[in-house]
């Protein structure tokens, strides 16, 4: 769990930094989208990423099953949660499921339109595939999506906030001193990642556009209007 988790956190960090570019320069962002199009390295990375998610997912269920079995058949009639125990730490699976569901939506909103189309001939609009900014604007112009994304990000924050220090603890890189350090690092890192994601969503929702947005999107609209396949 810890190794796949950390790899996924690194991916998220990369993804979030990439997204922030969309706030600064639409062209820059689209350039990155272009890099990560249907190239062999991008596809390989995607497959690896998918593998990580699946592994993380399988481990999670296997672990939960084992732990559920270890718990025994009778449950306590009265329970009380000590102050020290974070809610997230006891509900990582639930949070994980929310994250996965959110991810499904996210893949539908973006990945399907930006990468899948390039891999599958005639699956959609190829020209728009590298126009990430367009899709961001398109998606978050709907406030419903923004709210759903924010809920999703909140769950992800909790998942990460526990997950990061927990991974280090599991890998043995912790102790009386490092425990507090990792807790702080977890909190800061997950907050930064989530804020970067959220900033893009909220900004676009409230109508913010990067200065070169119109140039970039007009080209896209032109393509769209041309109905190119």
């Amino acid at each position: 769990m810890s190794l796949t988790g950390i790899a996924l956190i690194l991916f998220l960090l990369f993804h979030a930094s990439m997204n922030v570019v969309a706030l600064i320069s639409a062209e820059g962002y689209n350039m990155i989208c272009g890099f990560l199009g249907a190239n062999w390295y991008a596809v390989a990375a995607t497959v690896a990423l998918a593998g990580l998610v699946v592994l993380h997912f399988i481990f999670a269920f296997w672990l939960t099953f084992q732990n559920w079995k270890a718990r025994g058949t009778d449950r306590y009639a009265v329970t009380s949660k000590p102050k020290k125990v974070e809610w997230a730490s006891q509900n990582m699976l639930a949070l994980g499921v929310i994250v996965i569901l959110g991810m499904g939506l996210h893949l539908y909103n973006f990945w399907a339109k930006m990468m899948l189309v390039e891999l599958v001939p005639c699956a959609g609009n190829h020209e728009l595939a590298t126009n990430g900014v367009y899709w961001i604007a398109e998606t978050f112009s709907c406030p419903c999506y923004t709210v759903i994304y924010l809920v999703w990000l909140a769950a992800l924050w909790m998942h990460l906030n526990h997950g990061l220090w927990s991974s280090m603890q599991t890998l043995g890189w912790s102790g009386k001193v490092w425990f507090n350090r990792w807790r702080a690092i977890s909190c800061i890192a997950s907050t930064i990642i989530i804020l970067m994601f959220a900033a893009v969503a909220v900004a676009f929702c409230f109508g913010y556009r990067p200065c070169d947005f119109n140039d970039v999107v007009n080209i896209a609209n032109a393509c769209h209007a041309g109905g190119l396949c």
Partner: peptide
């Protein structure tokens, strides 16, 4: 012996 795995909830150290 059928004990579960640690998921770092810290309930143990709290009690």
């Amino acid at each position: 012996l059928g004990f579960g795995n640690c998921t770092n909830t810290r309930a143990c150290e709290a009690v």
